[in-house]
Design a protein around this nucleic acid. Structure first.
Lengths: 338, 338
DNA sequence: CGACGCGTTGGAATCGATTACACGGACGAT
DNA sequence: ATCGTCCGTGTAATCGATTCCAACGCGTCG
């Protein structure tokens, strides 16, 4: 593979001049420039990013650590993150933590070792000591979706409280009174937050959220099934199950079907995180949609700001309710039609 | 951030010795080793992967270029690839081509610039000139799932012909005679292959595959919908639609529902690529499952073989039919019950 | 007692770029 | 004619590791 010296030799200049041309430094004669460019062309020269990074102490690379690639929400996030990063001239390396803290640490360490310019993280657990260290050490960092309280790092996330309130109102309007929730892990901010928003919304309508109507989940399908089975075994089972993420909603759907019940006739179902598949299930599932693309863009921009010396800002965007048929009634837009 | 010199100074040895300790070179005294290790510990030293890569001319990194991250099949593949690579001491950088040739080239170029040790590709199109160049240039490379004919690179893939035959037999057994297929892009090997396998299987049963029963798709949901609408508008619409990938199957499902038809009563549906969601649609969708985890493992191992000087081998694993309810009848295991 | 060998160690070159600094030449001003 | 400026360019240092080679100390053997 041709190096900068080969180009220099062929163009009859020094390596310094080649470098200057390639980095569009002003003081290069037009003549030298064309000769260099020609040499680059014929040799098919591509600068060695490793050498360049060593010298310049920047890799133009962002690390993205997500909790679970198999979750469509994160996949989508990753896709938009890469898109925006590319637009800003960065590459992205994705680390999938699989909801396992030690894997998360592994990826963080690897990314730091590669001297990525900045880190985008959606913490799988409450945050390892390693992550705190990294944040403290001055590595540019931004949290997306989930975050760690007490760590001074910008957070880009969706606020679901309004949408949860809308959802609860929607359910209430359909006549449902006994509402249950499958929560996420207590260690994640999103886990707690969604439960609290749900509880608040219920209270405002004069409804209670008994402990038996709070299922413990871990954002994986199996936990959604278990929690739902427990709900259904109750003497007075809920009329609605609200899953705090899409995977658990799927598990819930399974459990409901396994019992021979039907959605929404026998029990209603709703989920946090809207994903393309929810349109195709039967019935289509009512969900709270996050503005994934906007979140991704905001997160990347915040990180780029931090890296390039500007002051990054935390961003909170509203999530919104997408009513479908899994809670009863019919169309998204018509509420009580009498 | 502490460098090797800092460690050397603190341990009272030279940088060379520190390096030897870290790379477990034999000739280091036990005493020096413990001092170095202690210094590494207290300083929290982590070797700079960039510098190391420059010197050793290897990055211990694999590039994975896939056609569409949003397709669960590829997401799953990526996950297993990373898993196996990690087990072998490699990191993985994923490039998502979004089924766009120019994006694919962008990622390939970026990955080469970073001097990844090897490249795993599932070509989005028939293969760009760039990709041929890279393959020819000696960069270790392995194709997964899709490949480019005429390029001498090992291929790791699933053979669907057996499973397609089983599927056709299954459908035939259920009394279906008019079978249609939604094909993938002609430029991809998997696109053609699946159509041919389908056609052959039909022929063996004395059935024809008229051109009107071949829909042109591009592996995206929208194309599946369009093709299916065309099928349904036919004077004699097919009794079965077989989609060559999971996204197009979803599009087909939409089109069928939009027409007010029911699966499988009015029309049957099957898909290539089994994904977790197919269990949750209504009805669950019959699919041909690829051994994704095994494919990923085999691909990574082949690439590692190539990189580390061993001789890599092409691998073909059989796909298998997973019969569900979308084609009629009931359970997976019982065939004609009379 | 000297030579040899072996285990350890440090010095210095190297990987492929970027960039501070110096130098030579052209040109305008005085 | 002389000096200063500015432009274009090359030389060399540098980034942080790895690794070849030489040297050194020490024990052993002839």
């Amino acid at each position: 593979m041709a190096g900068i010296k080969d180009v220099a030799a062929r163009a009859g200049v020094s390596a310094a001049t080649v470098s200057r041309v390639l980095n569009s430094h002003p003081s290069v004669s037009a003549e030298a420039r064309t000769r260099v460019l020609a040499a680059v062309e014929t040799l098919g020269y591509r600068p060695n990013a490793v050498a360049r990074s060593l010298r310049t102490a920047q890799t133009r690379t962002l690390g993205l650590v997500i909790s679970d690639v198999l979750n469509p929400y994160f996949t989508e996030l990753a896709r938009f993150v890469e898109e925006e990063a590319r637009a800003l001239g960065y590459s992205v390396i994705i680390g999938n933590a699989d909801e396992r803290p030690e894997l998360q640490d592994h990826h963080i360490r690897t990314l730091i070792d590669r001297r990525i310019d900045g880190l985008l993280v959606s913490p799988a657990d409450g945050g390892s000591p390693l992550m705190r260290d990294v944040a403290l050490s001055g590595t540019p960092m931004v949290f997306v979706d989930r975050w760690i309280p007490g760590v001074d790092v910008p957070v880009v996330r969706a606020d679901g409280t309004g949408a949860v309130r809308d959802l609860v109102a929607h359910l209430h309007g359909l006549g449902h009174r006994r509402l249950a929730i499958i929560a996420g892990p207590a260690a994640t901010t999103t886990g707690n937050e969604r439960v609290e928003a749900f509880r608040d919304a219920l209270r405002k309508l004069g409804l209670a959220l008994p402990d038996t109507y709070i299922g413990q989940g871990d954002f994986q399908a199996a936990s959604g099934r278990r929690a739902t089975e427990r709900f259904l075994a109750l003497a007075e089972p809920p009329e609605v199950v609200f899953a705090a993420d899409n995977l658990m909603a799927l598990g819930a759907l399974d459990a409901i079907r396994a019992r021979g019940l039907r959605v929404p006739d026998d029990i209603a179902l709703a989920a946090f995180d809207d994903i393309p598949w929810f349109v195709h299930t039967d019935p289509p599932i009512t969900a709270i949609a996050q503005p994934t693309a906007d979140l991704a863009r905001a997160a990347v921009r915040a990180l780029a700001d931090r890296i390039e010396g500007r002051t990054p800002q935390s961003v909170t965007l509203p999530a919104r309710l997408v009513a479908r048929r899994s809670c009863g009634e019919a169309a998204p837009n018509q509420r009580s039609d009498r």
